[in-house]
Amino acid sequence: MWKAEDSLDLYGIENWGNGYFSVNDKGNIIIFPNKDRTQSVDVMDLIEEIERSKDLEFPVLLRFPQMLEDRINEITGAFLGAIDEFSYKGTYQPIFPMKVNQRKEVIEYIIKYGAKYHIGLEVGTKAELLAALSLGLPRDAPLICNGYKDEDYLRLALSIHNVNNIIIVVDLFEEIFDILKYAAEMGIVPRVGMRVKLFARGSGRWVESGGEAAKFGLSTSEALELMKILREKGLIDSLKMIHFHIGSQITDIRTIKNAMNEAARIYAKVRKMTGIEYLNVGGGLSVDYNGSNTATPSSANYTLQEYANDVVYTVQKICEDEDVPCPTIVSESGRAIAAYHSMLIFKVIGRKNAKDSLLRTPKEEDPIQIDDLCSAFKEIDIDNYKEHYHDALQYRD
């Protein structure tokens, strides 16, 4: 007889669910919004309630804001734990990138639940900046401006410098001239950051967004020239942040280690010439979608705590080696915060069993490869699918 444990094993829910999902004795998916095993939501009960409703119809997107709170607590807690373990002499600052989820209610929940950590926002357009300003972000919460910046975007960001804790990140070298020009016209001393290109590259699907050929970021020579320009204008203390981003969904911890070594060294060298305060490690914290705990594109071969430990330890070690103060570590782990909290439910309008339509009994005159393929097709399961997949590729070729 099929049991709930069989479903958990077949679909690997315990591996990818991160404690939020399971199966009850009725065989239904259940959700633990804050990982409290005594408080669960039966998804089938919700579906039946929606079907009875006169105001709702499928498809329906369910949101569990408690998961947002839990993820903010977990990520911040991991960094605070690492800071305590390694006696790190700086602090940690969480940031949520609005491009990850721009829904008003989602951002409001994140600001509410992250208030105790002074969680800030990252925006990449003028529209996102306007949206962020409408949400009542606390004055001490950082508001980081990235992306392509036209005159309207820059003037808006500069105009509220004295109201919000805004840092305008120079993603392209030419932007520094516009920032300084408009700031001078408005009589404002800007707070700026610079995004640097690392030689280290990411891993997974977004590997091309990092490395020295990345679209955004300053080369070493451009970063030095930017600091020279600021120094000549008496604005070197306006440089507040170094930022890097080597891609989303970084699946291999070695990639993170390499990037952190390079970025922390850059910070230390810059800190000797400026009063820079923040090292922004960007996004990249992976979500293990398939539960395999590997460096494949939909997984990660590391844990949240390992990630935080490596970031904090590396920065601490290099700052001690270079004899410079430790920065406030900033991370923009938007995917890791928001990925679990929503579920799309839609009606099945048809089905096709490809397995039944493709399977046939080999004939005597068939090549041996056909017989091998049919045998693999019959024997494949969740434990051996990779082996049979590799065999099938060989038979095909």
Rank of each mutant, 00 (worst) to 15 (best):
T303W: 07
L224S: 15
T220L: 14
R351S: 15
A295N: 06
D323V: 03
D237N: 03
F216I: 02
A308H: 05
I256Y: 01
Y278P: 15
N280D: 07
L218R: 12
M227F: 14
N280S: 08
Y302C: 13
A339Q: 08
G334K: 06
G334D: 02
Y302L: 12
L230K: 01
M260R: 13
K347P: 06
D323H: 10
G211Y: 14
Y307E: 05
D323Q: 14
E320Q: 08
A354M: 13
S299R: 02
D310T: 14
T255D: 05
T274G: 05
K257M: 10
E225P: 08
G350N: 08
I329C: 11
F346L: 06
L224D: 15
S219G: 00
N290Q: 09
D310E: 04
G282T: 06
K215M: 01
A354E: 15
A259V: 07
N261L: 15
Y267C: 07
A308Q: 07
S342F: 12
A263V: 02
G282E: 05
Y302R: 06
S209H: 03
L344H: 05
E232C: 00
V312M: 11
L224I: 10
E225T: 03
L285F: 14
G247S: 03
K240E: 12
T328Q: 11
R231T: 08
I242Q: 07
E306T: 14
A214M: 02
S299M: 04
E232G: 01
L224T: 11
V281Y: 02
V348G: 10
T314L: 00
G350Y: 01
K233Q: 07
L285K: 07
F346R: 11
D310S: 12
G350I: 08
M227D: 04
A264D: 04
D252A: 00
K240W: 10
L239K: 05
I236L: 10
G350T: 08
L304G: 12
D323W: 09
L239H: 13
Q316S: 11
I329Y: 14
L235P: 05
I337T: 00
I253R: 11
E225H: 10
N293D: 05
E212S: 09
I345G: 09
E322A: 13
R351I: 15
I242N: 07
Y307P: 15
T303Y: 01
S209F: 01
Q316K: 13
A268N: 08
A308R: 08
F346I: 14
V324H: 10
A259I: 13
G234P: 02
I276Q: 13
T220D: 14
S331A: 14
C326K: 04
E225C: 12
Y313V: 06
I246R: 09
D323N: 11
S298C: 00
I250F: 08
Y313F: 12
R265M: 00
G283D: 01
D252C: 06
E332M: 04
A300W: 00
E222T: 05
E320I: 08
I345K: 01
E212K: 02
S238K: 01
D252H: 12
G217F: 03
I345T: 08
A354W: 14
G350A: 15
L224C: 05
L279F: 14
A223K: 05
N261P: 10
N301F: 07
